[in-house]
Simulated assay, not measured.
Amino acid sequence: LALNTYPDSARLKDWHAAVDKAAALGADAIIAAEMAVLDYAARTHPRLPRHLSVQGSATTAPALRYAYERFGISRAVLPRVLSLQQVERLCEKSPVALEVFAFGSLCIMVEGRCQLSSYVTGASPNRHGVCSPAKFVRWEEQQDGSRSVRLNDVLIDEFKPEEPAGYPTVCKGRFEVGSEIFHALEEPTSLNTMELLPRLKQIGVAALKIEGRQRGVAYVGPVTRTWRRAIDQVMADEARWQLRPEWQAELSRHAEGHQTTLGPYHRAWH
């Protein structure tokens, strides 16, 4: 159960109640980021497994050790800013199992706390569950088939009739800078680490995280099935595992801008 939002002190009891309910329902684990939530869960429901969210921003072995010793976490999700070499070093030193992002959107902001979306909408992505909350999004289609999209009445992007369009976020919008209109902050692209599967297994990564917030069944079904096949095959016979073109083609169809990247994993400096 995801409880990785950040409560304010006046409503902390609501998060405590959610932890209580998760324990009562027999949840396999909770994932949390805020220390008060983790502390409450550790003290009141010590048998309820606790995972540290990516929004906890643990990027060092001492940070992981602190969360383990203080809150008894059994797993941590690493932020999407680490190189493969850095992930490997953490796997060697971490007292808990580590989970890494494998596929999905990338973010230029601190995980889960997009200031761009907050500025445009006045709504916290952390509290409202996502950047660009759906209630602020408005699409408009013109007679020629072209489309424009606004976020809280702010124009984010315009698309030609046959141009694919992803979910609108400020960071991946096109804006006029000087006399040019282009992706001024970030190109639409998705993380895809499938080619690294054998290496991730070798260095001791325990689990892979597929970004799926506000995704429909047309995304979740094909993406998870593709990853399931690839994971099953690498677990069965790592030495003979090969990256299949049809897997990559399927994932590319569901990637933002139909483009993929290894993100920070391929970074030479670290």
Rank of each mutant, 00 (worst) to 15 (best):
Y6P: 06
D14I: 10
D14F: 12
D20K: 14
A23T: 13
A24V: 03
L25C: 12
A29F: 08
I31D: 00
I31S: 00
A32G: 07
M35D: 03
V37F: 05
L38W: 01
R50E: 03
S53V: 02
G56W: 07
S57A: 10
A61W: 09
P62A: 12
G72M: 11
S74P: 01
P79E: 01
R80Q: 09
L82P: 10
S83P: 12
E88T: 11
E88V: 09
R89V: 12
K93R: 14
P95K: 13
L98S: 00
L98W: 04
F101Q: 06
Q115I: 10
L116K: 02
L116I: 01
S117I: 08
G122E: 09
G129T: 12
F136S: 03
V137E: 13
R138M: 07
S148E: 15
R150H: 14
V154Q: 11
F159D: 06
F159Y: 15
K160H: 15
E163P: 15
A165T: 08
A165G: 05
K172L: 02
G173N: 04
A184S: 08
E186R: 14
E186P: 00
E187N: 10
P188Y: 05
M194Q: 03
G204K: 07
G204Q: 13
V205K: 04
A206T: 04
G212C: 03
G212T: 05
R213C: 06
T224H: 03
T224R: 08
R228P: 01
R228H: 01
R229T: 04
D232N: 14
V234E: 01
A236F: 11
R240N: 11
W241F: 15
Q242R: 14
E246M: 02
Q248R: 09
E250C: 15
L251T: 03
A255S: 13
A255L: 05
G257D: 09
L262K: 09
G263K: 00
H270W: 12
